[in-house]
């Protein structure tokens, strides 16, 4: 499959202001040196814990915020600096679905009007808008009557379906899904995941699936990138990441997910300490102070992404030794 989107050494530092003259006193290093690509029709799962920068990556890609460094290449076209009509065109190809469907829907609008609003912005002619809206509802497993509902009249799962329908309004190619099922109960989560998979198979959408839930990623993604303190520490095809991960952080993360089967007894890696503060600039590996295998070099130099196998890379000095 041809590559659809590629980001190269993407970085985002948020300035911290202080004092009367609002002097910049430091930065939040939200994303540092992120490089990855997603092929057409595939799903890249971006996993990591709270505050690791995964949502920032999503926002950078849909261009809600400007990157500090790096490039975003979409369909062999550099979109890092696009604006105006070109940006509008880009936005009709790339859409985003946020975690909390209640917060991303206008409580005073019925579903139909929310969909119409998007269509108006993207210049879909008036006469066909209604038919298009009905088709969208069917596509996400809702019916025409739901067009006349307010968000509070829908259940959590239905709301998320509406948000997905709205993202599909402009027939995008690439969809950034930011924790789309985190606020849903498991039985409903399975429904939404099914819907997303089905849409992908039918219409060939490409996803960036951002989540903290490793089990969901295993089911949804073709490739996985693991983030820690703003850096992608490991990326690999899903099968390989779950069977043969190389980075100590990925290994610890996988071992600490509780498995709903009491007969499985596992060797648990319980990490000490907590993720570092993204405000202090890092010297060396971001994971060094929690890593069970830490040695001198880890504290001094940031490890580069070291290739393990085809498509499998990890930022760890252990891999270089061999």
């Amino acid at each position: 499959m041809p590559e659809l989107i590629r980001v190269e050494s993407l970085a985002k530092y948020f300035p911290i202001y202080s004092g009367i003259i609002q002097k910049i006193i430091g930065y939040v290093y939200a994303v540092e040196d992120a490089t990855f690509a997603v092929n057409k029709g595939e799903t890249l799962g971006l996993v990591g814990e709270t505050g690791c920068g995964k949502t920032t990556v999503g926002k950078l890609i849909v261009k809600l915020i400007e990157p500090t460094k790096g490039r975003i290449i979409y369909n062999n076209y550099d979109v890092t600096k696009v604006h105006g009509s070109k940006l509008k065109e880009y936005r009709s190809k790339v859409q985003m679905v946020f975690q909390d469907p209640y917060a991303s829907l206008n409580p005073r609008m019925i579903v139909r009007d929310m969909l119409f609003e998007v269509m108006k912005y993207h210049g879909i002619p008036k006469p066909i808008r209604y038919d298009h809206a009905v088709k969208l509802m069917e596509r996400v497993g809702l019916s025409e009557e739901h067009l006349y509902r307010y968000p509070h009249e829908l259940s959590g799962g239905q709301r998320q379906r509406v948000v997905i329908a709205r993202a599909l309004t402009v027939n995008p190619e690439f969809i950034v899904l930011d924790e789309p099922t985190a606020s849903l109960d498991v039985s409903v989560q399975a429904q939404v995941l099914d819907l997303l998979k089905e849409l992908q198979e039918k219409h060939g959408y490409t996803y960036l699936f951002i989540t903290h839930n490793l089990a969901v990623v295993r089911y949804m993604a073709t490739h996985v990138a693991v983030m820690y303190r703003g850096m992608i520490v490991e990326k690999a095809p899903t099968k390989i990441l779950f069977s043969d991960s190389k980075h100590p952080y990925t290994q610890a993360l996988l071992s600490s997910v509780p498995i709903p089967d009491p007969t499985i007894k596992r060797e648990r890696i319980i990490l000490k300490g907590e993720p570092p503060n993204p405000i202090t600039p890092i010297k060396g590996c971001p994971f060094a102070h929690r890593c069970p295998y830490v040695f001198d070099k880890c504290l001094k130099e940031v490890p580069p992404s070291i290739k393990v196998d085809n498509g499998h890379e990890a930022r760890c000095w252990l891999l270089e030794k061999r």
Binding site: V186, S187, A190, L214, A215, P260, D261
Partner: peptide, 8 residues
């Protein structure tokens, strides 16, 4: 209904 980390 649960996706699993330990198996497909």
């Amino acid at each position: 209904a649960l996706p699993r980390v330990d198996k497909d």
